Amino acid sequence: MDDELRQRLQDAARAHHPDRERMLARVERGMSQGGPARAGRVLRPLRAPMPWLRVVGATVAVCGVLAVGTLAVTSALHDDGGGQRVAGAASPSTAAPEQGSALPTEDGPLWSDGSVNSNSNRYWAQSEVTVKTGKALSALTVELRIALTGGVNTTGSWRSLPVEDFTASAREEGGFLVYRWTLKPGRTVPVGTHTFAGQYNHAEGARDAKGDDYTARARAFGQQAAVGGDFGPAH
């Protein structure tokens, strides 16, 4: 290329003035019509929900199911009266123990008596069950029931037989303070007369023991015996 042609091209380039306003108008027109790319801006597809949003949604759904299940179980555990029932196997009914006044005072090798100790006073008393046996006993349960009249509460108990031979308890049951002595397995009660005593406080004054009773049930190596009664005057 000679120098004259090069000079002409340079003069033409310097003389060219682009129409800037027209170019901007074309760009704006293209952007308003949309498209995959405009003025260097790339349109990206919508992304899937972030993982934590999926976890939150699943948690909310599980909580809803648990809430409905809990409501159903709670409703099933209440009866029409608003009380709560506990599901489970029904336990067999047990008859109330026979009261002492319905039993004889003597049966087979056993003889019995109930009395209030003469040392009892206006605030405290000791009721005693005396058991006499003509045979050695392989099993024996003595029960002393003190009616829960005013102020009655236990202050202790004792027996004339060895303490280690018996399991003893004192508790309130069905309107009575109940003392119970049970011979331990493998132990025996020898022939003779034996005493079981329950001690208790009561309201001030002379206490009437007519509501009290006792029972003694025994086995003399195969022979069953049961005695009982109420309480006579102090002696």
Rank of each mutant, 00 (worst) to 15 (best):
A89L: 03
R47E: 15
P190S: 11
L66F: 10
M1V: 15
G222A: 02
A139C: 09
G174W: 02
R54I: 09
A96K: 12
T167W: 08
K184W: 07
G134F: 11
H235R: 13
S91R: 07
P45K: 06
R217F: 00
A67Q: 09
G88N: 06
T94D: 10
G192L: 10
C63G: 04
R217E: 05
E164A: 11
A209Q: 07
A226Y: 02
R6A: 09
V56N: 14
D230S: 14
A197P: 06
R122E: 10
A25H: 09
W158A: 15
S157P: 07
A209V: 06
R180Q: 15
P36L: 14
V65Q: 09
W158S: 14
R171C: 07
T193D: 10
R207D: 01
G205S: 03
S101N: 05
L110T: 00
A216L: 00
A90E: 14
G156K: 07
S32H: 10
S93R: 03
G192E: 12
R6P: 06
D230Q: 12
A226L: 03
T130L: 11
R159H: 12
F221V: 01
V142I: 04
D79L: 06
A125F: 02
P109L: 02
G81R: 06
R171Q: 12
R38L: 08
A209D: 13
A89C: 02
V152C: 05
A12L: 13
G69M: 11
L140F: 08
K210R: 04
P18H: 02
S120M: 13
A225N: 00
L53F: 08
R38A: 15
G35I: 13
G35N: 07
L140H: 08
R38W: 02
V191E: 11
L161I: 04
A25D: 12
L137I: 05
V42F: 06
A61M: 08
E128Q: 13
V152P: 04
V65D: 10
A218T: 00
T188H: 11
Q99D: 02
G186Q: 09
R29K: 08
S160M: 05
S127E: 15
V142Y: 01
S112D: 00
K184R: 13
F231L: 13
V152I: 11
Y214S: 04
L110S: 01
G81P: 04
V142K: 01
P190K: 10
A218L: 02
Q224N: 08
P162T: 15
R22F: 02
G108P: 02
R145S: 05
G151P: 03
D11Q: 07
P233I: 00
E204Y: 12
Y214D: 03
V27A: 15
Y179T: 06
A220W: 01
